[in-house]
Each structure stands twice: as structure tokens, then as C-alpha cells.
Design a protein around this nucleic acid. Structure first.
Lengths: 248, 248
DNA sequence: TCTGCGCTTTGACCTACATCAAACTGAAAG
DNA sequence: CTTTCAGTTTGATGTAGGTCAAAGCGCAGA
């Protein structure tokens, strides 16, 4: 009856993040089993659309590898990205029929899906899944609100710096390459995607990236490969409080 | 053992919204009892700060009457409102020690509070509370994302129209005064608060409100009392899709 | 090797909104 | 009734970022 606490131990129990994250030792083994039974994988190529806003969406899913974006589009074509889905992030809303946003793969993407019906049934029987989902949703809500500050009040330069800092931080975290403040990573977004995320035009993004380069805050190798020689210097450019707002 | 399903029946079982919303017939009567025991009320005057960002927050709460705002402030004073709390909305995050935002009463305000510890304990024992909270959080996330589109891509006029539409819609809902499209309500926000919500300056807000008045989209009586003669006309000004995006 | 095609950069110009400043309004206090 | 003061309106001017246009830069395919 006792499954290992995969949440803390973090050992390999399959490729699907939700298994790591939503299930823990306190859950019964047969619930794990059920999750296993209803899950399946889907792959997408970079640029492919996973689902269009308004389409029927009969599954929920989490990202296994790659990056996906959530975007909203106005009738006249103005676009705003409202979410960036990184590995282990969750998409889809239990209880909702149709997708609320366009979901697009910006890199090659693998998602771990669960058909909605059985997932919902399981959720109502397995309290810890709802609790884990709540936690993740609250994290996303915080991220969205941080982004509201960015969109509403930051300058173009601060916006770019903030985005770079987020991606850099995440990559540093994954690669543990945060050696004495220097971080190297590949931008997973085009200038246009960055613009859609930041509420700018692609020209302004290009100009500000050039400006940051000119000022020595970042260095470019090619268009996409970025070197941040001094992460603290980059952080100064974001306009955020220096003490990174570490809340628990 | 059977309590009435207050969620659906909606009869009066006390002033506290979370009682209506988080507890339902499927919950045990003694859980209701416990919720009852750990809750208490707090009142604030218009303009008072409920809690400052970073302060220790040892409770979670829901709004009973009045309006509160969540705002973020940058070091140099730039401010962005990231949430508007209306009656029945929830503040506070189970598991977090410190407040992430300034919470301010913009009108006289009554909140129903729960000390965090016992609330968390109860949540872990009463699955439906976590599920209800998840639903509410997902709603907030959707609202935040809609706001991201507004902040990133809408013009000042569209921003104002959108905000008025939200408040008008809500008031129409409460008062059932949506008689043939004409809606009347009081603005609960100052020009400056509107500006902080919309990512504008108060002067621009004032100018655009005047413009909407000049163009007959709205009428003003005094500074705060607003008449929307034709709600559909107002909606046209928001830039949103005409079919209101009704997702379930 | 050349060609075409995304993606990006850069420049010249324009405009929506910000900034600065002054006057107005109305309610509360004396 | 006058004063005061927070909130608001309106005007004049400045500017960050948008728009339009033209090159530049790989890279895949022929």
C-alpha cells in the first residue's frame, strides 16, 4: 500500500511530470495505477498549434519536454501571450469544455495528456491531486500578476531584461551553471514571440536587445545564443526589487 | 448528518461567503461546524490598508462587503493594481507566510477571516474546500490573463471601456437592472485607482472618460455616478470579441 | 554556387500617451 | 459663508515606443 514519496525523493518513475508532482506517498497505490492507465503522450513540432482558442478540449495535460505558449488574439490581430509553459507546467481546466487560449508549440514539444472525464473523476477521489493543482495554479496566478506589473508599468528595456532574467534563471537552475554569475543559454523565442509576450513590437524588442548588448549587459553569439556575464547586472535592469521577492 | 446544499440553494446561512461557496451538502456537518469556529470578522474603512506586501499574514479571508484591491509597487513608486476583490473573492495563500501584495480597502470593507493554521488543517481534511478554492483560483487566473491582454495591447479608450464594462456587468448582475440595455452604477474607484489598474496615468483616464462621455457612450452625474445608456455600445468600445467569450 | 525565404536589424518618421502645470468642483470643517 | 483640500479636468508640451520601409543575415534547397 505504501508507495515511495516520489514528490520528495524525486526518483525516476516515468516521464510524466504530473506523476512526480501530483501524487505522493499519502496517495494509494491504486490511484497511481489509475493515473497510469488514463495517460498518453502527444508530440508536436516547433510552430505547430496544439489547440485553438474556442476548440473543444477533452483533455488536460502537462508539458514533458519543450516549450508551449498561451496566447490571446483580438479581432484585428493584436496578440498577447498570457502564459509560457515550461516542462512540468499544466494546461487545461477541469470542468471547462473549450480552450480559452491558443496553445502553440514554440519548440518541439511532448505533452502528457489525460482525458478530461477520467481525470476529473480521479481528482474527486484523490484529494491530493486537487491540492497539488491548487498550488500550481496559485503559482501561475502569482506569475500572471508579476507579468501585469511588467505589462502595465515597465519600460521596454526593463521588460526585455525581465524576460531574459526569467529564462536565464530557469536555465541556470536546470544546468547548475550559475558559476560566479555568468550564465549562458539559448533563447527559445523569436523576436516576435518576445514582443507578444512583452506587449511590444518586434522592432522595439530588437532595438532593446541591441541596446543591452551595446551596454555590455548581455553578449550575443548568433541571434539566439545569449551570454549573461553578470547576472546581478541584468537584474538591476529589470526594475524589480533587489531582494528578488522571496516569498514562501 | 445531512446539511442543506447551501451552494445550490443559496439560502442565507450567515454573512460569510466562503460558507456558501466552499462548503456543500457533501461535506460533513461537523466540518461546517469547524469552519464556523475558526472564522472571525474584520472591518476596514475606505482607504485603509489591510496588509502591506511582505508583512506576515497569518490568515486567509474572503470579502463579505465592499471592495479591496491588490497592488504591487516598484521601488521608484510606479504602481500596478493586480487584482480587484469583490464580495465573495478570496485573499491569501495557504502555505505562504508573507503577503505578496498590498491589500487596500477602497470602500468600507468587511472581511471574513480564518486563521491560517486551522484553515489549512481543515483544508487537508475536507477535500471540497480545496476543490472549490481551485475553481476560484482558476477563475482569478483567467481574469488575470484577460487583464494581461488589456495591459499589453489595448488602447487607453479600450482600457477604460473594458473596466467600465466589467463593473457595469457586475452591478447589473447584482441589481438585476439590466432593463433594455441601460445600466446605472457608482464607480467604486478614483481616477488614480483606475489608472493604476489600467496601466495609465490619472490624466489619461480623465481624458478618456470625458471622451466617452462626449461621444455618448456613457453619461456622468457628478464624478462617480455613471449611466450606460446602451451596454452593447460600450462593449463595442472594449475591443473584445463580440461574443463575450462565454466559456464553461 | 546561387536563390529564396524566414528572421532580424536599422533608420526615419509619427502618434498615443506621459509629464508638467494650472484651474475647477464639491464636500467637509471652521 | 469662507476656507481647505482631495479629487478631477483641461491645456501645452515632451517622448517612448509604434509604424513603415529597406537592408542584412543565415540556411535549406536546387
Amino acid at each position: 500500500m505504501n508507495t515511495p514519496d516520489v514528490l520528495n525523493v524525486g526518483h525516476d518513475c516515468g516521464a510524466c511530470p504530473i506523476r512526480h508532482r501530483a501524487v505522493c506517498a499519502r496517495c494509494e497505490a491504486d490511484e497511481l495505477q489509475k493515473l497510469e492507465q488514463i495517460k498518453y503522450y502527444r508530440s508536436y513540432q516547433a510552430g505547430q498549434t496544439v489547440i485553438w482558442s474556442g476548440d473543444k478540449m477533452d483533455f488536460v495535460a502537462s508539458v514533458v519536454t519543450g516549450i508551449a505558449t498561451l496566447t490571446q488574439t483580438m479581432e484585428d490581430g493584436r496578440r498577447q501571450m498570457v502564459g509560457l509553459l515550461l516542462p512540468s507546467d499544466f494546461v487545461g481546466r477541469p470542468g471547462r469544455q473549450a480552450a480559452a487560449y491558443d496553445v502553440t508549440a514554440t519548440t518541439d514539444l511532448v505533452m502528457c495528456c489525460f482525458r478530461k472525464k477520467p481525470f476529473e473523476e480521479m481528482m474527486s477521489k484523490t484529494p491530493h491531486i486537487a491540492q497539488r493543482l491548487l498550488e500550481m495554479t496559485l503559482d501561475e496566478l502569482d506569475a500572471a500578476r508579476e507579468w501585469m506589473l511588467l505589462l502595465g508599468r515597465k519600460t521596454a528595456r526593463e521588460k526585455i531584461a525581465s524576460l531574459l532574467a526569467i529564462i536565464a534563471r530557469r536555465d541556470a537552475h536546470l544546468n547548475l551553471k550559475a558559476a560566479q554569475g555568468s550564465i549562458v543559454f539559448d533563447l527559445p523565442l523569436t523576436r516576435e514571440e518576445m514582443a507578444d509576450y512583452l506587449g511590444l513590437t518586434l522592432e522595439t524588442v530588437s532595438r532593446q536587445v541591441s541596446a543591452l548588448k551595446r551596454d555590455g549587459v548581455i553578449a550575443l553569439e548568433g541571434k539566439r545564443h545569449i551570454v549573461v556575464p553578470d547576472f546581478d547586472r541584468l537584474l538591476e535592469e529589470t526594475g524589480d526589487d533587489s531582494d528578488g521577492g522571496m516569498l514562501v
